[in-house]
């Protein structure tokens, strides 16, 4: 069961940034230093997911540094579903205690002429899970960098990234470090590149010597909608162990002309046919979100931005 709406409290960090959150299980301290919002968030005692939703008013650049601590056996959802019109810089350090679950949902639309960066380091303890969903449009310059440390047995990372870019630049770095045996990582990345966009994905998986019984999957796919757009997919594997189940794939290509012709033959104009095609390309990914509310948000995001 999800946390009930009526339990949620509102906290204002600045006049442009606030959060709705479940005050029973989430403790927040904040300070503002040189325009930068510093947050310390700790989550305790929450068997059902506690939720924090960021609310941004777009009157200032968004600069946030957050330290998040999800205590053992607790469960936390962070939702950032904002259309940003100013520059953003979001730095997060997350620590997940034994048996905890963290779900991060970012459905972000950025304005073309802005610069945006998101840097996240997440360390996972025994039996903890991090589900990481990032949806972005890209902008003049967007950089997403996520570092995952799988520090203990049965720690589990599930990550998905969707980029729907239009005349934008979007760099994505994912660095997954298997530092314990019996940990799992599963990551998928899909990018649609249009209007002279340039999207890159560097997906690195490192498996340490002692890490037997490791499972790691990574798939990245790029869809090029015109000849001036680019997608660069770079999987990098460094595996120092034999007892690893690994599947990795990267592929990018143009839209299938046969499909676009089929749609046209049914009366669907080119731009609409391309949109439908993109929706199809990304929908495989949406079905991976198991929370139905978030799945609906993901579908809505794709329809609105493609």
């Amino acid at each position: 069961m999800k946390s009930a709406e009526n339990k949620s409290s509102l906290i204002n960090f600045t006049d442009y940034l606030s959060a709705k959150y479940d005050a029973d299980s989430i403790n927040i301290t904040h300070s503002v230093i040189d325009d930068e919002v510093h947050l310390k968030i700790s989550v305790t005692n929450s068997k059902t997911p506690s939720r924090l939703t960021l609310v941004n008013k777009n009157t200032n650049n968004f600069k946030v540094i957050a330290e998040i601590n999800v205590e053992s056996q607790s469960s936390f959802e962070l939702i950032d579903e904002n259309n940003y019109e100013m520059d953003t810089s979001f730095k997060m350090d997350t620590y997940l205690g034994d048996g905890s679950v963290f779900e991060l949902y970012r459905f972000n639309k950025f304005k073309a002429e802005t610069r945006n960066s998101f840097l996240h380091t997440c360390s996972l303890s025994k039996n903890s899970t991090f589900k990481d969903y990032n949806f972005t449009t890209g902008s003049d310059h967007t950089k997403n960098q996520t570092k995952i440390n799988l520090n203990d047995k049965n720690s589990n990372y599930i990550g998905s990234g969707v980029v729907i870019s239009n005349s934008s630049k979007c760099e994505n770095y994912l660095d997954i470090r298997h530092l314990s045996d019996s940990a799992k990582s599963d990551c998928s990345f899909k990018a649609v590149s249009r209007g002279k966009s340039n999207v890159s994905f560097n997906g690195k998986v490192f498996v340490d010597e002692k890490c037997f019984n490791t499972v790691s999957n990574q798939i990245s796919k790029g869809l090029l909608m015109d000849k001036d757009s680019k997608v660069n997919l770079t999987p990098i594997l460094e595996i120092n162990n034999d007892d690893v189940i690994c599947s990795h794939g990267a592929a990018s290509g143009k839209a299938d002309e046969e499909i676009l012709f089929y749609l046209a033959s049914r009366g669907i104009a080119k731009a609409d046919a391309e949109r439908l095609y993109i929706q199809g390309f990304l929908s495989e990914f949406i079905s991976k979100i198991d929370d139905s509310e978030m799945q609906t948000k993901g579908r809505k995001y794709i329809i609105e931005n493609c």
Binding site: I259, F261, Y262, S265, G267, Y277
Partner: peptide
């Protein structure tokens, strides 16, 4: 005319090999 305009004008082709559109 563009293919989509031909369809909107009332032409319909039932394909010998219909095309698959995954995800929709």
């Amino acid at each position: 005319k563009d293919p989509y305009e031909r369809s909107l004008d009332g032409l319909f082709l039932a394909f010998q090999y219909p095309i698959e559109l995954p995800g929709v």
